[in-house]
Write a protein that binds this DNA or RNA. Structure first.
Lengths: 196, 196
DNA sequence: TATAAATAAACAAACGTTCATTTATACTTG
DNA sequence: CAAGTATAAATGAACGTTTGTTTATTTATA
């Protein structure tokens, strides 16, 4: 039997991401994707059940790649400040190295597809993170607080810096470029907030 | 001459928001919007130049409504902690009272239309906020820091809590409902981070 | 040779947009 | 105050495209 051309599959993924980044979800179509990928429209339906399935798989895979990247070199038994610092660096590096995929993922996360995408991400990631936080509180390295408050303080500022960077500007259209220095300043304030 | 039916215009706006919330930007079409609004497709082209123009105006107007709401009862000469508290309450109230419009705006902000929408928001809002921060630093109420760091610490956590609330769940699919208590806990940590 | 991959061509349906026409109202005229 | 006119609002039907998806066929490999 004829073998699947993995390379072709990868081109389709890459072109899909590029197309969503450049034209948005509303400018994204199967026929345009096929043409851009140098592939027949029917081929897309060998790889994916339908358009929704393609978008869903794109989002889920990208989300998985991100959580994997975030957990590199991390384990929940690390001292709190160091564990958090590693996660910040992991996320920042991943985002800066994959700006297109990241921007695409951000669009999907905020689109009408987000429920299905989120549903597929509820794996062991939240569990590891929950364990890390619980242990830090027990050890007196972290003020007791609801997990949602923790998450909002611990990561939302970093997300926001990356968003500024991806958009190239912060509030009022002021140009902005992410740097390690800016990140460390922000992380220091976050640690200050979380310290008992 | 015949007069414009303002009510009809408003219905179109409302239905557009509902449709984008429920079906996403990729499920949003002029013909469906016309039908849902009980209006001829051609009528939409009296109100708006084309589909892009409609989406743009929707985003810009919603952004304006939000910044207006945020500044209610606020002025840059307030003591820092109080000024920030007012802004948090204003934003939270506005979001909770306009969940659909807010979710629609979030989609537009993260779509391919975001550049045009952002370009129209760079009004006096950032200026007022810049003045507020500058004064707080001079008065010793706030640690000196780049404005982007300030913004990320000061508001991103609140945005994130609201996002959890709108999605009905936080990390790992855990159900979540926003409350004044949760907000105040988070605000307290933010103020702790920002305090000199 | 068996079989899944891949295709080109086609489908109805929906798309964004326009056009010729009708409708309602503010303003002018008697 | 009533009748008539000018004009923008509003329409239903249609335009050519593009949409998502399928079908019948060809191609490459185990």
């Amino acid at each position: 039997m004829r073998t699947r051309d993995e390379n072709k599959e990868q081109i389709v993924r890459q072109k899909a991401i590029e197309m969503i980044v450049q034209e948005g979800l509303d400018g994204f179509s199967m026929q345009k994707l096929a043409k851009a990928s140098g592939v027949s429209p029917a081929t897309l339906y060998i790889y994916y059940k339908d358009k929704d399935d393609l978008i869903l798989k794109l989002g889920v895979e990208e989300g998985k790649r991100m959580s994997d990247a975030t957990l590199q070199g991390f384990n929940p038994d690390l001292p709190f400040a160091e564990g958090l610092r590693i996660q910040w660096h992991n996320r920042a590096r991943f985002w800066l190295e994959n700006p297109q995929a990241n921007y695409c993922f951000e669009q999907l996360r905020h689109s009408a597809h987000r429920d299905k995408i989120h549903a597929s991400i509820q794996d062991n990631f939240a569990e590891i993170m929950g364990k890390f936080v619980k242990k830090a509180i027990q050890n007196g390295e972290l003020s007791p607080m609801p997990i949602e408050v923790y998450w909002s303080i611990a990561f939302a500022p970093l997300y926001n810096l990356i968003r500024f960077h991806n958009e190239g500007r912060s509030m009022g259209g002021k140009p902005f470029i992410f740097s390690e220095d800016i990140m460390n300043q922000t992380l220091a304030l976050v640690l200050k907030a979380l310290k008992p």
